[in-house]
């Protein structure tokens, strides 16, 4: 079975100096790696979650996958086609095949357009005239569980959950094969979070789309994703099947993330792995294992030699010298 999406050693770089300055000042690096050596594959109909804190490179990687961000090295293949080598017309077709749910649900909707024009806009951009606008919008509204009258509303008249649903409708407007959801539950109330996750699950079951979910909350992806990739400082540090990662997390960072979300049980004795300090700057990456500056289990080796990314079981790989 060929993968729908396959990433191999993807590297994304951002400049830190102007071209002029980098000509004269050669002592410091001209760019830094926002994403380093990211490799994974996503099968059709599956969901993969990218998990990490701010600055981990999750959104940058997602933009690279959609072709909105140039990659410096590596390859991104969608259905066997190399994304970075696509011509303009191919890219247009490619973008039809991906739906993108933006992180800021309300901010990503133009405040001067009605919901109806917002969710039919993708069809206009791509010149899809197969459906009548009104018919298309009622179909989409129905699909995401919004009443017909929402078509006439403006974004400011929507609640956070409703705006998120409009975002889902927009992403699904052109029947994509892959949906990228950037923090689908960020900023939502606990009672509404479930609604959006249920909707995504249900749509995936009905329409057989693949999904890439980006989040900082491991609890969110436990119930939605088949595979998880945990990112730290632009690198995937642990990757595997969701069930396996939750049952046997091995990387200290994964353990810290898992224990970081406080449980709603006041008597629960947590054996918490608390990290010291904050994420280092990707401009000055730590030597050796990049996590060693915050790792409670770091030893001398960790500061010297970067750990290789190795499989520890079928469908479970990580980079750590001393996995738990």
């Amino acid at each position: 079975m060929t993968a729908l999406l396959r990433l191999k050693n993807v590297r994304v770089q951002f400049p830190v100096k102007s071209t002029m300055r980098s000509l004269f000042d050669r002592t410091s690096p001209a760019s830094f790696d926002a994403v380093c050596d990211a490799s994974f594959s996503l099968q059709a109909g599956q969901t993969l979650a990218l998990v990490g804190e701010s600055g981990a490179g999750k959104s940058t990687l997602a933009l690279a996958i959609t072709g909105l961000q140039r990659i410096a090295e590596g390859s991104i293949q969608f259905e066997g086609q190399e994304v970075s080598r696509m011509q303009t017309s191919e890219l247009r077709d490619y973008r039809r095949a991906i739906g993108y749910m933006w992180q800021n649900a309300i901010g990503s909707l133009s405040p001067r357009m009605t919901v109806r024009s917002l969710i039919t806009e993708p069809a206009k951009i791509h010149n899809v005239a197969e459906l009548d606008q009104r018919e298309m919008s009622s179909k989409l509204l129905d699909l995401v569980g919004l009443a017909e009258e929402f078509g006439d509303r403006y974004p400011h008249q929507l609640s956070g959950g409703q705006a998120r649903r409009v975002g889902v409708a927009r992403a699904l407007a052109l029947s994509p094969r892959l949906v990228v959801a950037d923090e689908p539950t960020a900023g939502l109330d606990v009672s509404v979070q479930g609604e959006i996750l249920n909707l995504l699950n249900q749509l995936q079951d009905e329409l057989q789309i693949s999904m890439l979910v980006i989040t900082h909350n491991l609890n969110v992806v436990r119930h939605t994703s088949d595979k998880i990739a945990i990112m730290y400082l632009g690198r995937i540090v642990e990757q595997g099947d969701t069930a396996e990662i939750f049952a046997r997390p091995r990387h200290p960072y994964t353990l810290a993330l898992l224990s970081a979300s406080p449980s709603p049980d006041p008597d629960m004795q947590v054996d918490r792995i608390e990290l010291q300090g904050e994420i280092p700057s990707p401009i000055n990456r730590p030597r050796g294992c990049e996590f060693h500056t915050r790792c409670p289990f770091a030893k001398d080796t960790c500061a010297q030699i970067p750990p290789p990314f190795e499989a520890v079981a079928e469908n479970h790989a990580l980079s750590c010298h001393f996995p738990r």
């Binding site: 804190e53 701010s54 900082h216 909350n217 810290a256 993330l257 970081a260 979300s261 406080p262 918490r272 608390e274 990290l275 904050e278």
Partner: peptide, 8 residues
């Protein structure tokens, strides 16, 4: 804040 900082 991020989860690991929230705990801090």
């Amino acid at each position: 804040l991020d989860a690991t900082l929230e705990v801090q």
